[in-house]
Design a protein around this nucleic acid. Structure first.
Lengths: 268, 268
DNA sequence: GCAAAAGTGTTCTTCGTACACCCATGA
DNA sequence: TCATGGGTGTACGAAGAACACTTTTGC
């Protein structure tokens, strides 16, 4: 951009965007930071972001800066708060429109090649430039809130994922542990997940029975917990039809219906 | 402010705040608008708001402008979104940090005296200046979301209110009808309401029995709905101790405990 | 005296939660 | 073969939803 002067009758603050990018590598929640190459805070870590151009919206600005500074092209971007403290930037008055974004697992793993960007586990983030420590705290709070009501989890996983991956993600974000069975049940009963038919050759090579034959279903509805039902079916062939590593996929159509039925935010 | 020129190396957008003030008169949800006295959109209605000064945060700006333009001094102010469309103001590039606020019933009724501000029922709002139609829509969406999780209702009523007033407010905001008994039960079981002891002279003048003597309690726990219990107690004096217009009050201390126990947003 | 609003409990259903065992995989 | 992790059902308690009649008040 050509350097010239811009004059106004009244003082104008500068307007910037900052982008808190969350990622999940299968174990930990991470954030993407860049090392500042210029003053102020040279050498410190900060969120990708930059000044708003006059011909772009804040969203476009955030996406552009993110691409320029980290190489990432993301889809999900959520404006969560605008920071306006008077002295948050030592150079001049700068207000920052902050977004959070979600990176797919593959983005996190393919990450730090040529750029100065780096993924930090959420618990190992150093002190950040400007008021970015505070921005991060607010972004985390918002993420924790939103994940109860919006299909955020799926934005952080690849297209197909196992129920355990999804559960680990929820546990990483919320900092709590869930019971595996209850988590499974609840996720399925929202109806926004669809099971992926695994027709890979390796599967049929190892085991070519119908995947819908699940021996547990045979005992469904019969309340006889005192007698161990599993041991009696030990020599039954259908026993071996149970599959491991079942993959799921987010079903946007079902999610849209789900949202429509529940006219305010419904819990996931 | 003295008029002079301010010059920057790069172009800066102007930064303003807008404030969507909701009020409730006991029947309808309303918003506070001011009539624009200058171009652009002279004569059109718009939200109170104005340009950010260099020595104030966005919150301070919104409160100041609100006071200047409508005379209202409010407590609850919530930043909900920043609007950055490139052409939202015909004069120059202006981004607007938008808030919503809640006015007490008394503010709504004492309202339109000397100022150019006026309360409009939410369904009778005219076309607004700038992109304020859109801002209003977003503010309503946010209010509808937030009321499920935050004690917003109480911010729109006077300090003491009846359960019916509270219910009418919820119904006005959410656009649905609730069962009176279920609403009552749910509100009480959150524990954030406390009943106000009504010791007004008129009450004891009319009826000086203890208010805790409630004949319905006599039948509590006895399941005999087929036999109408009320008619048999017709000549019993204690029958007349039931009070009408029981008032409640928001209990902030209980609310804080309630919030702490439920570590993420819990529903009201 | 009539219409409108306020006050109150119980039942049924749904949802959340606690909890245990078997099987596959890979070291 | 052993440790780890994935896959599955049931039973209990809490909360939500549906539902009717009586009393007061104001016209």
């Amino acid at each position: 951009m050509e350097k010239q002067n811009y004059t106004y009758e009244y003082p104008h603050p500068a307007v910037a965007t900052d982008c808190v990018v969350f990622g999940f590598d299968g174990r930990e929640l991470k954030v993407l930071l860049i090392e500042r190459g210029i003053e102020p805070y040279k050498g410190a870590w900060a969120f990708p972001g930059g000044f708003l151009r006059m011909d772009e919206t804040a969203e476009q600005c955030a996406l552009r800066e993110l691409k320029e500074e980290t190489g990432l092209s993301l889809n999900y971007l959520k404006q969560f708060k605008t920071f306006t403290d008077v002295n948050r930037d030592p150079r001049e008055r700068v207000i920052s429109i902050a977004f959070y974004a979600l990176a797919k697992k593959s983005d996190v793993q393919g990450g730090d090649d040529a750029t100065q960007a780096k993924w930090f586990p959420i618990n190992e983030v150093p002190h950040l430039a400007f008021d970015h420590d505070y921005i991060l705290r607010k972004a985390m709070e918002k993420l924790r809130e939103d994940i109860h009501f919006e299909p955020i989890g799926f934005g952080l996983l690849d297209k197909e994922f196992t129920m355990s991956e999804l559960q680990r993600l929820y546990e990483a974000i919320l900092g709590v542990q869930f019971d595996r069975r209850n988590f499974h049940k609840k996720m399925l009963q929202t109806g926004i997940l669809e099971e992926v038919e695994d027709d890979s050759p390796t599967f049929f090579g190892k085991n070519n029975e119908m995947r819908s034959m699940n021996i547990d279903a045979l005992f469904g509805g019969i309340a006889a917990p005192s007698r161990p039902a599993y041991s009696s079916s030990r020599d039954d062939d259908s026993r071996s039809t149970r599959r491991w590593g079942t993959k799921f996929r987010f079903n946007k159509r079902n999610y849209d219906e789900f949202k429509e039925e529940n006219n305010y935010r419904s819990e996931f």
